[in-house]
Design a protein around this nucleic acid. Structure first.
Lengths: 339, 339
DNA sequence: AGGCTGTCAGCAAACGTTTTCAGCGCGAAG
DNA sequence: CTTCGCGCTGAAAACGTTTGCTGACAGCCT
């Protein structure tokens, strides 16, 4: 069992020392209610003589509130999570709430961890597709405020996400129609996350719209830079490379670019590559990564806002907030290269 | 003010329903103490009829323990933080403790945030160099268990870190002496973190030992991939490139490699590049990144263990635990290339 | 039968706050 | 001189647990 927490001064002690009641000290400490100047001075003196801070434990119990928001992610590596969390945090501290981050690391035992986290926060944001079906519903039915982030909208579950299908359709058609590439391949796993699924959906849809027939199946890989690198190596070993690679995110795209350069190939002359997210690195490579800009920070902020609102006034209708994304054409798709 | 937390069943209600006292329910719920089988069955029935879970708020107050550990980082992007945190978390859940992560984002107002976090955990791990001087001391003097992670050891502050100076010395001498490179440049900011400072120190020390005179000053950049890319672009614009680049971490090294490839240069034939950390991506590029392996996960785990021990039995002598690192020679330094 | 031991369960005190309610003193209004 | 209202303060009841102590009761040994 854990050792007792820091034993600082208590309301009692300060009260005794200042010759007032605990109620008065509480009022002074929080700067609310009516207290005469004279008393306030005495109490204040006692307070900072002991460097007194009200115990969060006591306060939390009395207020029946943890003063914290939770956010559940599959992991936390990479610019995407980092940005989303940062936005979420910003809104949280703005509301004087702490943030508890839970990276499930895709573990099997994550159920218990999530339950545990839910028990220490006033509301929970959950990334779509990371939790076993039913778990989220069970928490919501228990009365816990919950918001889904970047997930497939479900009945009675407020959701915040970004537009994926249409923009990936446009991106793919740019490759197919504008550039006339014939063999375009999708790098990413539609089963790994709702976002990836939507992107794959847009990819397939574009093929049909462009009259390009059924696309080749997705190359199922993770979302790290190394996954992109490895995918390209394998693809090359297996036969002639596609003319273009539409990657599920920027990191894998950059990994792919690196692999291609390593093979002595040129991007986009030999193989075109596109990404998704528009991370800081995307603008840098000589070719400039063609990608989709999505408001990651805003995504986090809006999620936090929705959650806070839900905590505040219980009732919350079904919400499905879809943030806009934007196609960013740079050079890696082939634009700017004399045909 | 936050809405009241989920209103689940309470010990009282369960007790009443099962016809026993709250003490008995508490005992059954936690599986401790002596309870007859008959009573236990009745209580258990009532418990899961209501899906009862003891309130963390009440429990925390009674036990005077938050059941949580805190960890303070400058940010949380990148494989390094991700791995360290993951190790830290593993030890924490093993001890049935939750983890609260605070990314200061290098903000000015972080002082208040840290104080706030310290007030909701039983112990705090702080990354070296991210907090204003004095703040850590103030917290420790207040009685909060604290462990420093990857920092410059200080009196009375248990510290866990990895070996940097000697290994960076060896790495640099490999470049200087074994390969005979004359102009080697350090990419990283010694003032940004203790680790970077130690690496720079090893870099400078190697120059003296190798009789190579004073090294050129560090190219002060951040730790992201894009920083490495940009640094190389600038360096090239400013004049002839160095023969080798010793980067403060793998991400900047890979950014540098990408920039060099983009310019049509070859690694290591034209410019050699080395990194630090040995992230998954390091082994992939054709040249194979020469780097230093450091046990990031173990670093996090050991930090958590030390913190837990400090929470358990108050007294804790000065500890300065230094984990071993290992030079990893791959191709990007020039090895394996016929001279 | 009387004492002893051991099992089981409840009472009540803590834990450190917030917040409601009532009371007190005092000046102003009637 | 009452009465009212107002500003200030304190007592005490929550909030939901854990845990030390006490007592009832049963079985067993002398």
């Amino acid at each position: 069992m854990a050792r007792r927490v820091r034993r600082g001064a208590t309301l009692q002690e300060i009260a005794q020392e200042a010759g007032v009641s605990v109620a008065t000290v509480s009022r002074v400490a929080r700067g609310i209610g009516q207290v005469s100047d004279d008393t306030r001075r005495r109490v204040l003196a006692a307070i900072d003589r002991h460097d007194f801070r009200p115990s969060r434990l006591g306060r939390a119990l009395a207020e029946r509130s943890h003063g914290a928001l939770g956010i559940v992610f599959p992991g936390l590596s990479g610019p995407y999570y980092s940005e989303v969390i940062s936005g979420f945090e910003e809104e949280a501290v703005h509301a004087e709430m702490a943030v508890i981050i839970l990276g499930t690391h895709l573990l099997r035992e994550s159920g218990e961890l999530v339950r545990d986290t839910a028990a220490r926060v006033d509301g929970l944001a959950v990334m779509g597709g990371v939790l076993a079906d039913g778990l989220v519903e069970r928490l919501r039915d228990r009365g816990d405020p919950i918001v889904q982030l970047a997930g497939r909208p479900r009945a009675g579950l407020p959701t915040v996400r970004t537009e994926n299908v249409a923009v990936f359709d446009r991106l793919t058609r740019h490759l197919l129609s504008d550039h006339g590439y014939e063999r375009v391949r999708f790098l990413g796993d539609p089963d790994a996350s709702p976002d990836a699924a939507y992107r794959w959906q847009g990819f397939a849809q574009a093929h049909r719209h462009a009259g390009a027939g059924e696309p080749a199946g997705p190359v199922r890989i993770g979302l790290m830079q190394s996954d992109g690198y490895i995918a390209v190596s394998r693809l090359q070993a297996a036969g002639p490379l596609p003319r273009a690679l539409a990657c599920a995110n920027d990191e894998t795209a950059i990994g792919a670019v690196l692999a291609l350069l390593d093979m002595g190939l040129r991007v986009p002359q030999d193989v075109a590559v596109t990404g998704f997210d528009d991370i800081p690195m995307a603008g840098l490579p000589a070719s400039g990564l063609t990608t989709v800009h999505q408001p990651m920070r805003e995504l986090g902020m809006e999620t936090a806002r929705l959650l806070l609102r839900q905590i505040e006034n219980d009732t919350q209708g079904a919400v499905d907030r879809v943030l806009e994304t934007q196609l960013v054409i740079r050079g890696s798709c082939g634009c700017g290269i004399p045909a």
